[in-house]
Each structure stands twice: as C-alpha cells, then as structure tokens.
Amino acid sequence: MLFLQRAGQFVFFFLVLVIVTYLVLPLISVFISKSPTVLWEKLNGSLAYEALMLSLQTTIISILFIILFCTPLAYCLAKKEFIGKKALEVGLKMPIVAPTAVVGVGLLLVFGQNGFLGGTLSLFDVEIPFTSIAVVLAQIFMASPFYINTARQSFEAVDDQLLAVSRTLGVSAFKTFWRVTIPLALPGLISGVALSWALALGEFGATMMFAGNMPGKTQTLPLAIFTAMESDADVATAISALLLSVSFLVLLFVSLVEKYMKNKLAAN
C-alpha cells in the first residue's frame, strides 16, 4: 500500500510537470533557439516594424469598439432576464469554437462584394475586404466573446443590494451604473480587455481570409510571421518573439493595473 501511495504521488507530479513543460517550452524556445543579436538583426530590415505598427493600431481600435459595444451587452447578460437569453449565450460563444478560416469566409459572405451588406456598402462607396477595416472587423469578431464573458462575470459579481441602496439614496439607475457598478467591476473588465487584446493581436486565420496580406495595410504580425515562414524561418522566429513580447507586455501591464485596482478596493 505504501508503495502504491508513493507511486501515485510520483505519477501525479510527473503528469503536472509534463504538461507544464509542454505548454511553456515551445514559447520559450522561440526566444532561446537563436541568439538575441541574430533575432534583432532579422527584425531590422524585415516587414516586422510595419506589421507591429499595424497590429498595434488595429488592435487598439478593435479594443475600443469591443469595449463600446460589448460592455452594455455583458451588463444585460449579467443583470437582466429576458426571453431567449440562454440561446443568446450559446450563440455568443460560437465565435470561440468556430475555425478562424470559417469566420473569414463568413465575414466575406456578409461584407464582401457579393455579400449581404456588400451591395449596400458599395452604394456608399465603402469597400471593406483588403482594407485595414477588414482587419479590425476580423479582430473584433474573434476577440469580443472573451471580453463579453469576463465582463459579464465581473458584472454578476457586483452585489444587487449595492445597486438597490444607491437608488434609495436618490441616485438614478444610470448614475448608479457609473458610480457603483463600473468601479466595482473594473478589475474584471480590465482583465477582459487584456485577454481580448492579446487574442486580437494573435488573430490570423480570419484576417488572412477576409483582409488579405498587404504589408503596411493588412499585414499584421501573425501574417508577417506566416509570410516570413515561406522564405526565411529565422525572420519568422524573430517576428514570433516580437509578437510574444508584445502580447506578454500587454498582459503584464493590464494585470498590474488590475492588481492596483484590487488593492484599492480592499482595505488599505
């Protein structure tokens, strides 16, 4: 029995160790496979700078749109009861499981020249495919479900009694939202922003399909990696390292902000 017990403990920690190594090693290897100077040289004179700038610009716009449109939705899902809520919840999770190439085709079917809205849009002389707008649309589509989920959870965590008491103190529902709900949900909202921002940065399949691959216009970092893969694997590695660093910085920055906010909420 003692032997089996020991063996079981060993197996347990072995499994944990294996999966942690497996999940971490490929990402680290991007940084350590080549010397930093080589990576740095490869980055210069490649498409990386343009792609980085485009990625940052498009993701910032995407995030702003996600915050603007998805926050009210997340609030409704958290605090309101309505018919078809369950169905809506499932529907909103679909983008998470849909293959990105399918999403790209779907977006083309809606916004493309022959799509549902393509005709209407072309009346206003708006063309979306092959433009930076398409990049933003693809990113919003892929990243918003994660924001909605986290935002919804943080709204749910705000005690209804606090909202009720605010009303009895003479503060309207709208002002209560800004003075109580938002401050209390903010740490969660911020981590939602971080998660969806990192996902938007990494968005690849739908962008490739829907926006095309044009340096300076629609070629984001992941597309630059894919393009570089076809010629010089070292450049691809270098850009991958860049993308991972940017995503890491975004996550780090946001988690620091979140920690600061939480500390402020707790007793000081």
Partner: peptide, 27 residues
C-alpha cells in the same frame, strides 16, 4: 426609489466597498 426619499438599511449593510466611510456617507 431615487425619488421617494426613503432611507433603506440592508441586512448586511451594503456599504460601497470602494469608498471610504466619508465617501459612503457623502454618496
């Protein structure tokens, strides 16, 4: 509720956790 001018104290007091005592009272 905001137009009734009725004070309500909840069972668990429902103080705003993000505000100090003064800020709570001033709310």
């Amino acid at each position: 509720p905001e137009e009734r001018n009725i004070g309500f104290v909840f069972q668990n007091y429902a103080l705003f956790p993000h505000l100090t005592v003064t800020e709570n009272v001033a709310y």
